[in-house]
Design a protein around this nucleic acid. Structure first.
Lengths: 223, 223
DNA sequence: GTCTATAGGCTGATAGAC
DNA sequence: GTCTATCAGCCTATAGAC
């Protein structure tokens, strides 16, 4: 099948409905009939477009990761610090625009050990993640960031903040003592600004005085 | 039923088996028969000890959260910085000792919007999380930590690192280019040390020169 | 306390009309 | 392309013997 073909609307309706339900309830609890109902089509129609429930699920995953990579790779900045801030902002914006998407991916990690998303994870690894690592290394080479930090660990710490905030949102709401129907998008953006500040501050060169910790090159042999 | 009663072995066998399977496969995919098989008892026996599948699930969650809170509340230190490091280390140790437990909790957050764990999340909020916030505020009052950071946001950033690392382990493995059967416990501990360093560096007072960012009191009105 | 047997419901998937 | 109708299989939960 050609890539740039105009897809029938029902197919997208089904994918949208499936994304919502898979993210909200998970794979097993989401029934074919419920997806059909949510999409406004007959449940038997799903088998016209998709081979089975698993293939539909994988296509939903693929679509989400493509969007995620596109947005985070589009983030730019004049220097490593502002580029890092733009990266975190893009991450938060991706979450804000499709609030259930991070859950979909987190669920895949937990439910299936990313077995259905091996390719997608590799894609993220060689694009968005590699780029973030590159930004940090660039800052280190330029003498802007401290050098006793493993760039890969620092990258994980950076993305983990907004990622965890999004995944654990119901718990975060309790931790922050927010009401149930609170302005979650505003709080997400505020937290994203904090997360960028937090990462930049963690990477910044320490004060010239005593603050040199005993972080004697904590890079770890990983392989 | 009295609390300190000696419980029959079958009950614990069932709880242990359920914890393993729920963590590995999730609630919906884990069948009563599979739990019985894993525990070495007949599946009908589960209904002798537990009202239904959901109650069994809730009891498993309750047991795990109790252990988590006990361990993180036991972490101590002479000053805010070392106490924070001890907290992160305790968090990592909890994960290291029962590798499937964080997934169980993360899955609960994602699956049911924490509906089955409202009490447990509240417990964590008023114990471990409150304690971490208190440590940060104490450091701010003592002039050790920067004051333009919301303590709650900083606490979330701190715990998010090891939490996300644990939840997203299959993806992290790819990001770090590790082999499938790699020494994950060692890497976890190494990352936990990095995470503590990262948080401490982010909270440390900036260099006296230009590094004062435009973080004009980023505390947010949340309620 | 632990088992066998089974009821009763829901699910994924197919056949086939239009 | 979209629908109705339907089946076979698996699941939770119960009844009741021992």
């Amino acid at each position: 099948m050609p890539a740039a073909e105009l897809e029938p609307p029902s197919r997208d309706l089904i994918l949208d409905a499936a994304e919502r339900l898979f993210a909200a309830q998970g794979f097993a609890r989401t029934t074919i009939k419920a997806i059909g109902r949510e999409a406004g089509v007959n449940s038997a129609l799903l088998y016209y477009y998709f081979a089975d429930k698993h293939q539909l699920y994988r296509e939903v995953l693929h679509r989400f990761v493509s969007r995620l990579v596109t947005r985070t790779m589009g983030a730019a900045g004049d220097d490593p610090e502002s580029a890092l801030r733009a990266f975190v902002a893009a991450q938060a914006e991706t979450v804000a625009r499709s609030p259930h998407a991070p859950r979909l991916f987190a669920r895949e990690l937990i439910d299936f050990d990313a077995a259905n998303a091996v390719e997608q994870v590799h894609l993220v690894a060689v694009t968005s993640f590699r780029r973030l690592c590159g930004l940090i290394e660039e800052g280190q080479r330029a003498g802007l960031f401290r050098q006793d930090v493993d760039p890969r660990f620092a990258a994980i710490s950076t993305i983990s903040q907004v990622a965890y905030f999004s995944i654990a949102r119901p718990a975060v709401r309790v931790l922050l003592q927010q009401p149930a129907g609170g302005p979650s998008v505003e709080v997400l953006r505020a937290f994203a600004r904090h997360a960028a500040d937090f990462a930049v501050a963690a990477l910044a060169k320490p004060a010239t005085r005593s603050s040199r910790r005993r972080q004697t090159r904590s890079r770890v042999k990983l392989s």
